[in-house]
Structure formats: structure tokens, C-alpha cells
């Protein structure tokens, strides 16, 4: 990160911790993971949990539509001006890792238009187990998998599972119905990730997104410290 960088005019480099006017920019957290694992549902739940205490916005990266953005709008988790959709040309991982320019514009425009913001959630389009975010785009990333996608995914590993700052194993309520072994998933994840945290969650349970929201709060406290 270029924490001591300064630029004339609009910022040129993405990871700068400060905006052109010298104020601290929002913390950016990426959410990636396979199609259907519950990224959008997690984003919606995080918005509901955090919107009273934080100023936040969301960038979605749909594969071929504005579906995810429209889901969030329909659920009314945030006012529409706080949700922005990026088009990814059939390559969601390119837009979050190899060529992050459209996403950077989206986060900067949100800060300009509805800021000041504390937090921006950047949701990737559903992709494969190797899709991770560039450090030039996000400060921390959450990888979301689910029990119905197969309980061997943590064992298979891959950059998302093994290196994300937080691994979420979603839809634990479905485990008995799809024959997934939660204890085995947790043990495999631990073996892949060492000390990096793992949350097993069901958004249908009373706790819902609580653990993930607490993790986000901790990251934000560290960012603003």
C-alpha cells in the first residue's frame, strides 16, 4: 500500500489510504466465491446489520446482468444511490484482480456522490475457487462457500479458500439434507488456512450474519485506528 503517497489532481493509484482532499477513504471489503454460495445474501444481511451504525455502500459485479444489484434494491437494504453495478465482460475475476479499473471508479464515485463512507462492500460475480481480489482494490476479502457445493471444497483449497482474510461456510442449515460433514469442513479449512479465521453460518438461524458483522467491525476499528 502506498500510505504516504500524494498526488496532484484526481488520485491515480488505487490503494492510497487517503482521498485527493486528504480525508481517509472508506475501508473496502471484497466478497468472492462460487456461484450460488450466498454472497449477495451475505451482503444484504451485512447491510441490514451495519447500516444503522455505519455509512456504507455496495458495488456488485454481475456476470451478465444487474441481477445482484437489483436483488439488493428489491430487498431495500440500502438506498439505491448507495448501490453501484459494474459490468465485467464475461470475466468476473478479471474485474476484481487483473484489471480493477472499473471497480475502482465505482468505489471512488460512490465516495464522491454519497460519501463520506465508512465501508464499501465489493461483491464479485460468482466465479471459481481461484478468484481473489487485488490488494489494489480491497483492503480485506471474504470468501464465501456453502455446504451444498460439496463438503470437499475446503480440502481442495485454492487461493480463495486458503488465503482469504475470512472464509465463510454458508447454509449450514442445509448440511443434514445434502450429506455434508460440517466438522470435516471446519477441520479441512483449518488445515488449509492455519490461523486465518473461518465462520460457519446459516442466514436462516437467529445469529445470522452476526459473526461476519463482528469481523467487519473489527477490521474497521483497525482501519480507522
Amino acid at each position: 500500500m502506498h500510505l504516504d503517497h500524494s498526488h496532484h489532481g484526481p488520485s491515480a493509484v488505487s490503494a492510497d489510504a487517503h482521498r485527493p482532499d486528504g480525508t481517509r477513504r472508506a475501508l473496502r471489503i471484497g466478497l468472492g466465491g462460487p456461484v450460488g454460495s450466498g454472497k449477495t445474501a451475505t451482503v444484504a444481511a451485512l447491510c441490514r446489520a451495519l447500516r444503522e451504525e455505519l455509512s456504507l455502500a455496495v458495488v456488485t459485479n454481475d456476470i451478465y446482468t444487474r441481477e445482484d444489484a437489483e436483488f439488493l434494491l428489491r430487498e431495500a437494504v440500502l438506498p439505491p444511490e448507495r448501490i453501484s453495478a459494474v459490468e465485467t465482460g464475461a470475466c468476473p475475476h478479471t474485474a476484481i484482480r487483473d484489471d480493477i479499473s472499473a471497480n475502482l471508479e465505482a468505489v471512488e464515485d460512490l465516495e464522491d456522490e454519497v460519501g463520506p463512507l465508512d465501508l464499501i462492500l465489493v461483491e464479485s460475480g460468482g466465479d471459481n475457487l481461484t478468484a481473489t481480489f487485488s490488494k489494489g482494490l480491497v483492503d480485506a476479502q471474504i470468501f464465501v462457500i456453502d455446504v451444498a457445493g460439496g463438503d470437499d471444497i475446503p480440502r481442495k483449497g485454492g487461493p480463495g479458500v486458503s488465503t482469504a482474510d475470512l472464509l465463510v461456510v454458508n447454509k449450514t442449515d442445509l448440511a443434514p439434507y445434502v450429506g455434508s460433514d460440517l466438522a470435516r469442513m471446519a477441520a479441512d479449512a483449518k488445515a488449509q488456512r492455519g490461523e486465518l479465521p473461518v465462520v460457519l453460518q446459516s442466514l436462516r438461524s437467529e445469529e445470522g450474519v452476526r459473526d461476519v458483522a463482528d469481523w467487519v467491525r473489527a477490521r474497521l476499528a483497525a482501519w480507522t485506528a
Partner: peptide
Amino acid sequence: KLGRQLMRAARATWPHPELDALAQRFP
């Protein structure tokens, strides 16, 4: 849109006052 995205990459890759001036003129 593509001009703005190229501008970001260009300024990070080949910093130049003329690029800065154009970025300022067309944010």
C-alpha cells in the same frame, strides 16, 4: 469511461504532467 480507466493506468505507469492536466480537465 474507457478514457478514464486508461488515464488511471497511464498515470500509474508513465507519470507525466500532461496526463495530470488532462485528468484534472476531465475528471
